[in-house]
Simulated assay, not measured.
Amino acid sequence: MLLTVFTSTLNRAGLLPRIFESIVRQKRTDIEWLVVDDGSEDDTPEIIAEFARKVPFPIRYYRQPRGGKHRAYNMALLLARGELMLTLDSDDWLPDKAVDVIEEYMPIVRCDKKICGMIALKADANGNIYGREMSGKVLAAGDNAKYEEVMCTGERCIILKTDVARQYPFPTVEGELFMTESVMFSRLSIDYGFAIVNKVLSYCEYQSDGLTQNIHTLLCQNPVGFMIYHSQRINQATTLKAAIGAALRYVAFRSMAGVNGNAAEHSGKY
């Protein structure tokens, strides 16, 4: 199987048909849709079951106790059957022929063991790209300056080799329900490169109750996760100013985390 499309969802039954229909329009049978439900209380299970009866490709549904998208992602890593894995949030969907484009780039990904996947563009419903296009054809492993250019100048669609992604699960922190994806991507970028795809491979329509729109709450409620992220950014900073900024934010989140931050730091486990 070429591709696992993974979606973590929480009470977003009304948005799931848009993802489903975009996958159907790919007209492929070498893909699967893997849905991990993070404790929904709506009719998500029934909707997914109805979808699964209509299509020739596998749709698999799993439910976990409320734990956050990063825990759902870790579950998906264990369950995915595709050679590649693409994460679509519940407010995302695929453009037509997105999987065909992914297949076009597969020779680059397969022939280089130091490339772990693809970085592509993401756009809104009107086709406006989030951020700017990327330069070059490859983001090489350990190229911190290029990583800043590619990953920090807009939203991206990331497609990963599943067997590589399994080696880089999210750390989890007891009592915290969010961890930025950058924690995982920045770790990956130390050891692996990415093929750059300057084509839109996912659309997004941010919701008023979504994670992106509630960043202040996330910062306050998940300080250890952000402490971990900024500790990584200190080492990967490309300028002294950036390193100092990351260090200051690390200290601030460590202070917010209090005892939990001290325990996490001393144990080396999250």
Rank of each mutant, 00 (worst) to 15 (best):
K199R: 14
T212W: 14
P17S: 03
A195D: 00
E176C: 03
V101S: 07
I228D: 11
L16A: 02
I244A: 08
K113A: 14
N11M: 09
V251S: 08
N262W: 15
E181A: 12
S208R: 13
S267E: 10
I215N: 08
P171T: 03
E133T: 00
N198S: 02
R110M: 13
L121Y: 02
D92C: 12
K54T: 09
E46Y: 02
I108P: 01
L86V: 10
K113P: 14
T180V: 15
N128L: 11
M1N: 01
Y130H: 02
Q213H: 15
I215D: 09
A243R: 15
K69N: 13
P223N: 05
R249A: 12
K137N: 06
E149L: 00
K114F: 13
Q232L: 13
R71S: 14
Y250A: 06
E50Q: 06
A247P: 01
K113E: 15
M227C: 01
Q232I: 09
A257Y: 10
E103C: 07
T217K: 12
K199F: 06
E205S: 11
E32Y: 03
G258K: 05
I215R: 13
G210M: 11
D37V: 04
S40G: 07
Y229G: 08
G154N: 11
P171K: 04
V24R: 01
G136I: 04
K114R: 14
I234T: 10
T239Q: 04
A49N: 09
R25Q: 10
I119E: 03
M75Y: 09
L79H: 05
D163C: 04
H230A: 05
A141H: 01
I228P: 07
Y250P: 03
R18G: 03
I23R: 01
L79T: 05
I158D: 04
E148W: 12
S202Y: 02
T87I: 11
S231R: 12
R60P: 00
C220P: 04
K122S: 15
I47N: 00
K122G: 14
I196A: 02
K146F: 05
I196W: 00
L188T: 05
E176S: 02
L248Y: 07
M118W: 11
K27P: 02
G39C: 09
V183N: 04
A242E: 13
E148K: 14
P95W: 05
L15H: 09
G268Y: 04
V251F: 11
L94T: 07
L16H: 03
L188F: 07
Q26I: 03
R156H: 09
A165W: 06
R166L: 02
K69C: 11
E155Q: 13
A195W: 00
K199T: 13
D163E: 14
S231V: 04
D112L: 11
S255G: 09
R249D: 12
T44C: 08
M118C: 08
D163N: 09
I190F: 10
V224I: 07
Y229C: 07
Y73G: 04
